[in-house]
Amino acid sequence: MPGDLTLIGFGPDGWGLALARAGLMTLYVSVSAFFCGLMLGTLIAWARVAGNWPLRKLAEIYVTIFRGVPDILVIYLFYFGGRQVVTAVGTALGLPGPFDISGFVSGMLAIGLISAASQSEVLRGAYQAVPKGTIEAGRVSGMTRFTLFRRIIAPQAMVTAVPGMGNQWQSVIKESALVSVTGLVETMRQVSVAAGTTQEHFLFYAAGGVIYLIITTLSDQFFRLAEKRSLRGHEQGGV
């Protein structure tokens, strides 16, 4: 019967410490992947908004592919395929094997690339919501492109972008559970191991669920604060 709660505690035969460490790993992978996605997503959004024809098409194809292929397939491709590529390159260079690619790196890259596709859509939408007149006014009054971005585009685009980015962050956290297939010990993996060892499947998967709920709820609060801040100077809100 499930329910020996000392198993998820911090006692001598409790898995508490391992679970807490795994929760931090989930956070670590998610944050790295999110920023990876943010950088690439910004470049893609830029290409789609201001690029020339081939660049725009390329960005469009990228988004279509990464939004149409299952996340787990991309992770498999990076993990198993990455090993294959690293081995091929290593052998060609005459280095002694065996070669391997870490679960963390391949998982982070895979989720980052997937997230970049969605983040670029959010950023593009936010840019397009900026009234054209304000950009023209800034240009007319002699702002450089960087000043224009910093003082006119960014503050206005932020209002639309922050809630969308919050959603993207939430899906990155949930996608990070898929990295467990590479053997990286994050929450999902740790919970599976603990469930297998103790045969208390329900208890440990529930504990894993609670860890994810804590992370998603806390970060939701964070994004709400950010949203409030982005609304400064607008009629409805702001502090």
């Binding site: 949930k174 990070s176 467990s180 469930a195 499947h201 998967y205 669920g209």
Partner: peptide
């Protein structure tokens, strides 16, 4: 159900 990964729901 929106706050936890689908993988954990399947295993659960």
């Amino acid at each position: 159900f929106r706050g936890t990964p689908l993988l954990i729901q399947i295993f659960m």
